[in-house]
Design a protein around this nucleic acid. Structure first.
Lengths: 132, 132
DNA sequence: ATTGCAAATGTTATGTTATTACATCAATTG
DNA sequence: CAATTGATGTAATAACATAACATTTGCAAT
């Protein structure tokens, strides 16, 4: 799937996430876009919904936040399951893929005849700098 | 770590989760315990906090819900990372462990010198019965 | 160019999940 | 019994997310 031209609101939300150092909550995004005319949460959530669909933004379930995909120009849906390491101190997020992990999880899933739609892998802890 | 004697509120919350067919939200638990004197969310959240700590209850991050651990009498902290398959149709949750997945994730983590505290693996989709 | 449709947007209100702050109570121990 | 600690009760509020409905915009078909 290729990413279509983003609409105005989608572009604004995406730019905010790209410039951010780490994940942002929907309401933080809203606050950052008040100057651009955003007034209500739905303006953010609707844009996020599309950006997630296009695979250019990820949702971090364990911290109710959103982050731009770490693969500029690429789209993440082709890489299999995406995993995240989230530093609980500085907020930094590392995104990675591991085919063996995918393979094991999908193997289990097949064994159960479970039909996966969306898989979440999130490791919360301390990054190297913060653990020191 | 061995599970200490549960307090009154902890027992009530745990019993509700054990009897439930699937995961419950904190507010659903609250409603089920109104007859037992529960009045406020905090009574539930405080009990859950301890039950999570003891490893007898799991939190499903992707659906903001809680479920009793699938290993009666045992405690889950000894099994490495716990993974869940959550049916989005019937709500049923399957809990499993995969040492190879643990190994791969922990290998990546070591390579980054990241210090993991809590890892979430949740597969949402359709169980065999619901996919049919 | 106009009509008709689909998608995007704007706005208000509300629903759902989680925590803060503070008071009280109960068990333990020195 | 005083002091401490952990559990509980209660009210208020913060944080996250969606429903419902009105309006506007872009664009294809005629």
């Amino acid at each position: 799937m290729t990413t279509p031209q983003l609409t105005k609101n989608q572009s604004l939300v995406f730019e905010v996430l790209e410039k951010a150092e780490g994940p942002l909550s929907a309401y933080t995004i809203l606050d950052k876009l008040r100057d651009h005319g955003f007034r209500a949460p739905l303006q953010v959530y609707r844009a996020l919904e599309k950006l997630l669909e296009y695979g250019v933004v990820h949702r971090l379930e364990s911290i109710n936040s959103f982050v731009a995909c770490a693969h500029p120009g690429d789209n993440c849906h082709s890489h299999g399951i995406v995993a995240f390491a989230i530093c609980e101190s500085c907020g930094q997020v590392m995104e990675f893929h591991d085919h063996e992990v995918d393979h094991r999880l999908m193997g289990w899933v097949r064994g159960q005849k479970f039909k996966p739609e969306k898989t979440t892998i999130e490791i919360r802890g301390l990054c190297e700098a913060c653990a020191a």
